[in-house]
Design a protein around this nucleic acid. Structure first.
Lengths: 141, 141
DNA sequence: TTCCTTATTGCAAAAAGTTGCAATAACATA
DNA sequence: TATGTTATTGCAACTTTTTGCAATAAGGAA
């Protein structure tokens, strides 16, 4: 309950429906704080909705992402993870130790503008993951 | 032959070996011009090396990426594609029609510096894919 | 050229993710 | 509140990607 409730009108307005499955998945994303893989979402949401399947989790996450309620991101190795889409940010991940931090979008803002004018594209999707070496791992090198 | 030959000493120097499989896969990447999915690489490389398996293609692509000879990129939906790592660039892809263009790295250079000083990270991996609407699809909206 | 070490491959099984389709259940309307 | 439409789910089969392990072969040293 709580957080996920507020999404109901958003879905209805677009002709979609709020279901116990979507409810549970949104709830999981809301209260996780970090991003989760589909199977992590599955394990947690299953406790709230008996009979939930993994296929539904995959479809729901993709659906939520398409509708701007969840943010998918590529964090290494080609696997997607998801988090709730409340504030715009990006990630930097350490190639070595896997440590990760958030980056405010306004650091990238002027670059986005340059990019838009250079390419003619209108940038919609704003999540990017950068890879590098964290301060600790740089010392080790 | 040709292009892929020059990589042999690079691998040897690090204690790795050049094999017919790696040879063929590098050759495919070199002569494709665009990025390819693992299965596309498999289909093409198989013609040069009888008995090549998909597992080997996956492992080889990951290996080449780790050693800086190939560049992996996330082009939508969580699937990885690969291309030969000869010049630094990024991609912008249209969410609507799938059209794609390259972006020169120097457009992002100053942002990379800001990011490094703000985070303390040393950014190593430089490929990013941005998503947006291409000029044509913007008109349609 | 032959031998030896060990990086690399193929195989087969497992894990992760996707898809078609019939059954179910949101929810707008009466 | 009862009803009909159709968005959504579960199921099961399928595709894609990963992994362990024994067999193979690259290439340095004798």
């Amino acid at each position: 309950m709580s957080c996920s409730q507020e999404y109901t009108p958003q879905l209805r307005a677009r002709g979609y429906r709020m279901t116990p499955q979507r409810h549970a998945i949104l709830h999981v994303l809301c209260h996780s704080g970090k991003h989760l893989s589909p199977s992590e979402v599955y394990v947690r949401a299953q406790k709230q909705v008996a009979g939930l399947t993994e296929a539904t989790v995959y479809r729901t996450l993709e659906f939520l992402a398409e509708n701007g309620l969840a943010r998918p991101s590529h964090v290494g190795n080609g696997r997607l993870v998801y988090e709730i889409a409340n504030h715009e940010h990006h990630h930097i991940k350490c190639r070595n130790c896997g440590d990760e931090m958030e980056v405010e979008h306004n650091l990238l803002k002027s670059m986005y503008q340059k990019l838009e004018s250079a390419s003619g594209y209108q940038l919609t999707d704003s999540h990017v993951t950068f890879f590098g070496l964290c301060p600790d791992c740089q010392k080790g090198e």
